[in-house]
Design a binder for these strands. Sequence first.
DNA 1: TTCAAAATTGCATACGTATGCAAATTCCTA
DNA 2: TAGGAATTTGCATACGTATGCAATTTTGAA
Lengths: 327, 327
Amino acid sequence: MENQVTAHEVAKLAGVSQSSVSRVFTKGASVSEKTREKVLKAAEQLGYRPNEYARSLIKRKSSLIGLVMKGVSNPYYPHAVKKFTSELKKLGYSVLLIDTDDVELQMQDIDALLSYHVAGVVIMDATASFQTAEMLRRFRIPAVLFNRVVPGTGLHSVSCENESAAREIARLLIARGCKSFTYVGGREGASTHIERLKGFTEELENHGFGCQVLPGDFTYGTGYRNGAEMIESGRLTDAVFAVTDLMAYGIYDAFRDRGVRVPEQVKLVGFDDIEMSSWSSYNLSTYAHPVDRMVALSIELLLDPEQSHAEGEVHYLTGEMRLRGTT
Amino acid sequence: MENQVTAHEVAKLAGVSQSSVSRVFTKGASVSEKTREKVLKAAEQLGYRPNEYARSLIKRKSSLIGLVMKGVSNPYYPHAVKKFTSELKKLGYSVLLIDTDDVELQMQDIDALLSYHVAGVVIMDATASFQTAEMLRRFRIPAVLFNRVVPGTGLHSVSCENESAAREIARLLIARGCKSFTYVGGREGASTHIERLKGFTEELENHGFGCQVLPGDFTYGTGYRNGAEMIESGRLTDAVFAVTDLMAYGIYDAFRDRGVRVPEQVKLVGFDDIEMSSWSSYNLSTYAHPVDRMVALSIELLLDPEQSHAEGEVHYLTGEMRLRGTT
DNA sequence: TTCAAAATTGCATACGTATGCAAATTCCTA
DNA sequence: TAGGAATTTGCATACGTATGCAATTTTGAA
């Protein structure tokens, strides 16, 4: 950085003023074709890049978007992250990554977002939501909760049609002739868990069926334990709906290890459609998130000033059922 | 950002000069306890955060580290990413994420790294290495290749003891009584592939054994196809070593689908020890990367001026064998 | 060819912070 | 209490770029 090439040096070499150099690199500014060529040639020769710090400072506008996640619990997120970075890059934004579950660092993370005056924040981590949301509101930084809904924060949410998807799954299992049902859930309070539980149990009730509800936390391990316990306590049902694919794998493996066959004895459905679900070891029926559309909408909400300063709303997008071997 | 609170406003409220405010937020600067308190109080009241753009500009030093990855092919990387962000945050750095496999955006990605004059770059993506490495050298930006070695770039590499680990795996399989061997590889040219292949085949040769080598690309799908083909062409061996866990899963599933039992008929070993390997559906024997130490060393190399400007070296760290159900 | 309109250019300044320097204050010792 | 050393403070400036304004050049029509 000490040997930084500046617009002044480019200007000198090109025989123009610093302003002209700046205008060449500022879209929407007017420069003659002749100077543009001279400047670009000199710039290439020197390896000039506009200094983003000076630029953001003078424009009073950041080109960074904060991406807040916590750990790597679910392979579903890396896909979304990649989509975000690609799409944002096309719009000229870069991504500031916040990814830790160290509570002591959380304040530092928020500081970073504020120090860089990020143009917006995407939150993929529920636990950070409350503290962070407050700060974001205070500093009027546009924010979107991705795949979660946290009532009362006033932030925009972009989520999947969890409830109606869960209803669809219920109807599917009924149509397959199942008579008894289990729902294995996620962390208490998580909107994905709440909404999927609601849709599933209500739809079953509409058709005159009850539902066994088991607690979970979105992890494979807990899925496995739930699956094992269902068998050992004799509470196995005709159908199991797991709140995420990851938990479904655990349940499936617990069944397989104990000789319970899927789908012959039990039908199993997950949620997310992460890559592994199409692997032959699981071949899991599941509900696919409309990830690309969710990302696109999130970005739109963040960057449209109309939207981003409006009171937060919840946007539910429709995904698609993927029928595979477990039903 | 338009309603940015500046050091001047804090200074006015606290009744001191802007310089004093700056000194309170600059570590190593000398301020009296009295002014510090006044300033901190005023700062909190106004919600002041030093503007990182102005700061980086005047100090001519970035607090950003670029993290370059490509897609999400291997669940191994998210763990490393998280570790990087946490450790870097402790040192006062934030992470600029580059994550795309869109070739057209690659130049823009490099521009971003240069525009922000990142203090260093961690590269987790082999394909970007060549183009990017050249740029990084030209602009004297410290860089570390993580889990890959690309000869001739002059960049530091932090990697796992692939070769000796592969030898250890060969000896293990021999000790288990295997007589015929297969190696299923990764993308041609990838250092992890080359080194593991070399260690494995050489050690087998030392003991008088040959080895069938099958081409691969690090993906589950190709693992599966290789596994299937081995059976269908009658070239199944006593032991199979896959270049990554991900490929091992594919091979395993192909075997399972065709009634070939692991480990009774075939012993199977992977590499990486990602979380799934301990799941009961695979319970895969594998070699665990020393991820934490690899990350720590990478950061050390990046931030130590002595190291970062020295000619790049390859640093191999020792991991640990994880014996599970497939051997 | 001439002259007004349009386009382009350079000058000067501002963004918010860090820091060398000199002035002001505090501290310590005699 | 005096007076010199040490600490703290404010002033002024610089970092590299974008942009309003005025000066200059180019364009186009008569």
